[in-house]
C-alpha cells in the first residue's frame, strides 16, 4: 500500500533506497566504518595495490600466493573506507513554506519536500554508516532553528527524523551564517547538503563565498535547489498580485506563466548562482516539488561518484 506523498520514508521509498548507494565524491575522514574512501590506506576490504615488503610490515598482509609464484615478498595494500558525517542544512525561511500559487492545491511545500528529501538521503547515508546531522535556518537573529550535530545511534536517528517531520518555517534569514556555523562545528572532510530555494537578497554571493571556504578545507558541499512549478513559470496560468512572503508589502501584479522576462530573469539568477558554486567545487542539484523522490535520487546518484 502506497504511503502518503508527504510521508517521511514510506515503505516503497525504503525499498527503492535499498538499491542505491550514496558514495562520497571526496576522500572521507570518518572515524567509523563506511563505504566512502578514506584518506587513509591500509586496513580495508578493497584491494588497492601491492607493495614490497618492508621490515616491520604485518605478516598477515603478506601475499603468500604472489610469494609462491614470484618468490618475492609483497604485502597487499587495501583502500580503507570510512563513514561520512553528513550535515543537512534546510532553509526554513518563509519562502520555503510555499507549495504553489493556488492555495489548497495539496501540493508539497518546498520545506516539506526538503524534509522528505533529507529523510531519504539521510536514510541512504545511514545505510552506509554515515552520521546524519541537521541544521535548520530560520531562527531569530540568524541563528539556526534546529541544530543536530552528526551523531551515531538509533536515538539520534529518531530525533533526526522527528525534527524533520515537525519542521515548520521560521524567520527569513540568509543561509551563509548557518553554513559558517555548521562548518565551525564539524570536522573537515565532512559532507554538507544545502536544501533551499536560494532566493538570497544578495543573489547568493555570501553563500558561494562561504561554500567555497568549506570546500577548500575538504568538505563536500552539495546545493539542492528546490522550486515549485509555479515558481518555474510552469504552473497554472493565473494572474494577480504576487507577493514575496519575505516582502509582503510590495506585491507585484503579473502572470508568471506568460511572462517570458520572468523566466529569463529567474534562469539568469540561478545560472549565475550555480556557476559560482560549481566553480568553487560545490555540487548543484535541482528539484521541483512535484518530482518523485526515488527517480530523482537515482538520477542524482547515477551521475554521482568519486571523481
Amino acid at each position: 500500500m502506497a504511503g502518503r506523498r508527504d510521508e517521511l520514508l514510506p515503505p516503497e521509498l525504503l525499498d527503492g533506497l535499498g538499491d542505491l548507494e550514496w558514495v562520497g565524491r571526496l576522500v572521507a575522514r570518518g572515524l567509523g566504518p563506511g563505504i566512502h574512501r578514506s584518506a587513509f590506506v591500509g586496513l580495508g576490504e578493497d584491494f588497492e595495490h601491492h607493495r614490497p615488503y618492508q621490515q616491520g610490515d604485518d605478516l598477515r598482509h603478506l601475499d603468500w600466493k604472489l610469494l609462491a609464484r614470484t618468490d618475492r615478498l609483497y604485502v597487499r595494500r587495501y583502500r580503507e573506507t570510512t563513514n561520512l558525517p553528513t550535515t543537512f542544512i534546510i532553509d526554513a525561511s518563509p519562502s520555503m513554506d510555499f507549495a504553489g500559487v493556488e492555495e489548497g492545491s495539496g501540493g508539497l511545500t518546498k520545506l516539506r519536500f526538503a524534509a522528505l528529501l533529507v529523510a531519504a538521503l539521510g536514510r541512504l547515508g545511514r545505510n552506509a554508516g554515515d552520521l546524519p546531522g541537521l541544521a535548520v535556518t530560520g531562527g531569530s537573529g540568524g541563528e539556526p532553528l534546529h541544530l543536530l550535530p552528526p551523531r551515531p545511534g538509533r536515538e539520534a536517528w529518531h530525533h533526526f527524523l522527528h525534527t524533520l517531520d515537525t519542521l515548520e518555517a521560521g524567520e527569513a534569514s540568509p543561509l551563509a551564517p548557518v553554513l559558517t556555523r555548521v562548518g565551525e562545528l564539524g570536522r573537515r572532510g565532512g559532507r554538507i547538503i544545502l536544501l533551499s530555494d536560494f532566493l538570497e537578497e544578495d543573489g547568493g554571493r555570501e553563500l558561494w563565498t562561504q561554500a567555497g571556504h568549506l570546500r577548500a578545507r575538504g568538505d563536500e558541499v552539495t546545493a539542492i535547489r528546490i522550486l515549485t512549478p509555479d515558481e518555474l513559470g510552469e504552473g497554472l496560468e493565473v494572474d494577480g498580485l504576487f507577493a514575496d512572503p519575505e516582502a509582503p508589502d510590495a506585491p507585484v501584479p503579473g502572470r508568471p506563466r506568460g511572462d517570458e522576462g520572468y523566466r529569463e530573469r529567474l534562469s539568469a539568477y540561478y545560472t549565475l548562482l550555480a556557476r559560482n558554486l560549481e566553480e568553487r567545487g560545490v555540487q548543484w542539484w535541482e528539484a521541483r516539488t512535484t518530482d518523485p523522490l526515488l527517480p530523482l535520487l537515482r538520477g542524482w546518484l547515477r551521475g554521482q561518484g568519486p571523481p
Binding site: V101, E103, L241, F242, A243, A247, D259, G261, L266
Partner: peptide
Amino acid sequence: DRRVLPTARFLS
C-alpha cells in the same frame, strides 16, 4: 487575487 510567490521579484 493576491497570491504568494517567493520569486515575485523576477516578474516583469
